[in-house]
Design a protein around this nucleic acid. Structure first.
Lengths: 344, 344
DNA sequence: TTGAAAGCGATACCAC
DNA sequence: GTGGTATCGCTTTCAA
């Protein structure tokens, strides 16, 4: 139980005023090398650390980022971790901390974070097309960055994967593998009903690429997230698009189920049929066989989001805050489930 | 950009003193129904929320729990989520927030959280046998709860799964399934080298049960976390303990690999061999075939940890803080990978 | 049952 | 370059 010291203790020991200690800590005014050294010594001697509450009160800056996480509401829970990890890393890199809030608090989480001055800025994940939390953002005193894009993004800062491009990439790979008929295993009903608009954006990319390549595509949906659901969806896909079609599976958890269903149907991925999954690289690599995938780039998305958020916090440094929608380009990695053919 | 109001605004509108507003909010002294109502009305009218920093400064309580999470350092990243989710839920249930810190900050995370008064208490996950963070805990001004048990737990509050019992349960199930020869696929080398003492505790339970049942057991290790690693380990296990042995796989990520390796070796889990995994129920159910498992009970462990932590924070309510080591009993669920036999 | 006022521990303005 | 001091918004004694 070490005693806790204040800046006054430091000042006393260093033989300076309390304000000087403050200025040494913040660097907000020039200090002679002489006194800075004395103060530093005192700080180390006492292992002084500034009281966060007092600092927040006086400076009106908490140095905390609020992070609203959709625990349990997201289709692929595993996919959350790289976001959390990258966001906290980015925050700590500039001496910010992260306050973790669950999305099931709804909009009240935002008013609480803002109203109580618990944080300087907010990261909001998993944005629905007409997210009920959007309207309260405008009334907040803190900047908010959305990971995901609502239907009306006016005046909001959003970062997300470019799902349209993801759709194009997936189709491109299948076309390059020689498929003329493509089936998209749609998102499961619970995802669709949540109205996450990346579903439509992805499909738009698929459609564009399909039209451009002059091939044929079928949308099989909805797929329930069960073994039998996967089997039914795969059967429907093979029926609609043919036994030797190319399959797009834009859903991490569905991919292994689809692979199993294909195996059960006697179709060999990468030989008889091709499969492109939309999932993180880690997930794609761990599957059997390893899946050609369009990556979700959670780390890039997170980094971009934090970059923009800090630009919003300090409008002076780093140029003008990139308001609007920022899209991160996805990356296709060919693995075992798509055969040869030209590089897309 | 709504203006932000203070308790003085509330006081002015309600026609009372600022301290009365404070007492209405905290309930720390009796207030007449009359004035309480006036204050409440004013609070709602202004949608007043107390400033967290000011409150922390004056009360010396932040109402924040620091949570140190081992991102990336843990063998099964997926396993982290139920901990995070349950811990934040428990905290919010009593109007606490959670500050997320990564374990890679090491011991300095603790001194920072404590020194800056960023939180009132700390949850430390993924404790190593001789965790370098343990020594600094004693010097902290805030209570700490460990999820996991170090070698020397003197004066510390720890909560963890009862891994010894987990080992017993696993062996019991295999013995009940009629196996006289048992193989344990050991933890992968990186886990072992981290000296997490649950590895030894689990093995102790296995040994005890093996001795008690008068059967034979073999420890196959280390298992690398690759497909070929799994294949080699399974081959070694079948060689050592026989083609019809019972397998214990105390590692979530290894289980699916082992299942595949068994299939490749022409052994059918639940028929030719039995398999008991140590993993969360969610993971066990999602595998093919569904695996008989001893659960890790992350939610129970988290709840116990938070219960104890709050007891540590308010020693008055809820009886004496249960200092020492609390073990949560694991639960075995029979699924498809262990055949019939008597209930263990 | 209520109010006045002294802190809590920083920041940042105003002097010098 | 440095020091004094008002101030941030709340909690909590001390008085009434």
């Amino acid at each position: 139980m070490t005693q806790v010291f204040t800046s006054r203790d430091v000042a006393r020991i260093a033989g300076v005023s309390q304000s000087t200690v403050s200025y040494v800590m913040t660097g907000k005014r020039p200090i002679s090398e002489e006194t800075r050294k004395r103060v530093q010594t005192a700080i180390e001697q006492l292992t002084y650390q500034p009281n966060a509450g007092a600092r927040a009160l006086a400076s009106r800056r908490t140095r905390v980022i609020g992070l609203v996480v959709p625990f349990g509401e997201v289709s692929d829970p595993m996919g959350l971790l790289p976001f959390l990890e990258t966001i906290t890393e980015c925050a700590r890199a500039v001496d910010y901390d992260v306050l973790l809030v669950t999305a099931n608090e709804g909009a009240s989480a935002l008013t609480r974070l803002g109203g109580r001055s618990l944080c300087d800025a907010i990261v909001l994940m998993d944005i629905e097309a007409r997210d009920p939390r959007i309207p309260v953002i405008a009334a907040l005193r803190v900047p908010v960055i959305l990971i995901g894009v609502p239907d009306d993004a006016d005046g909001l800062s959003c970062v997300d994967l470019d799902f349209t491009e993801a759709g194009r990439l997936a189709v491109g790979e299948l076309v390059a593998a020689g498929h003329h008929r493509i089936a998209v295993i749609g998102y499961p009903p619970d995802v669709v009903s949540r109205e996450l608009n990346y579903v439509a954006r992805f499909q738009r990319g698929v459609d564009a690429a399909v039209t451009a390549a002059g091939v044929e595509s079928h949308l099989v949906q909805p797929l329930e997230r069960t073994r039998s659901g996967a089997r039914a969806a795969v059967a429907a896909a093979l029926e609609a698009a043919g036994e030797d079609c190319g399959l797009v599976v834009p859903n991490t958890v569905a991919v292994p189920h689809v692979l199993r269903a294909l195996a059960a149907a006697g179709r060999r991925p990468g030989r008889d049929v091709s499969v492109v999954g939309v999932c993180t690289d880690a997930a794609a690599e761990s599957m059997e066989p390893a899946v050609t995938n369009v990556s979700l780039e959670p780390r890039d998305v997170s980094r971009r989001a934090m970059r923009t958020l800090f630009a919003l916090l300090d409008p002076d440094v780093g140029g003008p805050p990139p308001s609007g929608v920022e899209l991160v380009v996805p990356r296709l990695t060919r693995r075992e489930t798509t055969g040869g053919g030209a590089t897309p």
